[in-house]
Amino acid sequence: MAVQLEFLKSILYFSDLGLAELESIRKLVFEKTADRAEVVLLEGESAANLYFVASGAVKVFKTSAEGKEQILDIVRPGESFNDVPIFDGGPNPASARTMGPVLLYGIKKNDMEAILRDHPQIALNVIKVLAKRVRHLVSLVEDLSFRHVISRVAKILFEHIGGEMGRGPRLTQQEMAAMAGTAREVVGRSLKALEEEGAIKLDRHRIIITDKEALQEIMEVTS
């Protein structure tokens, strides 16, 4: 399947370019397909390619020494990943895994440098993409003052218990994130941490509070 010019035009990097310029870039773009749950980038490895998601979604994440995962971003069609090491020459700062079957458009590091030299007007859009990423990561750093978020999530769970009197309000992770003033990704990790501490059990669409006292103790922790 040929790389679509229309799709290239929809990518912020290339949105200001004309058809002739897009055509010259298209020659440097290669396709890569991957199935569900394939690791397409590994943290710490040298970075060879910049990727754009053409279809599907990719999860960008860091893994701790204990194997805990923190999602940094979910990359959707039209968005890019692995930009930073392509431009600073360092290793991949995070890993990336497909969330389903994906089609990626890749550009080799050297080719991307040539594209920037040949089409310097792209630079402003690259800066916009990187600035957006910095803003997102700064916000995540703020959220990851972690114990504090866990205690806020614990409090939200406690305040929304449904019981014999009827069902409490059902909450999505997005709603919990909005209530806790944090990112959805951080709520997901907080729930897993609460489960590891034995305070709750995740049972499909139910969050079962298995140790009310433990949950209360976590609620009272502030940092």
Partner: peptide
């Protein structure tokens, strides 16, 4: 992944 926020997976919170 939903870019428009159209899907929700709400949790029911209960005490064991």
């Amino acid at each position: 992944v939903c870019p428009t926020g159209a899907i929700s997976c709400p949790f029911e919170i209960i005490i064991q």
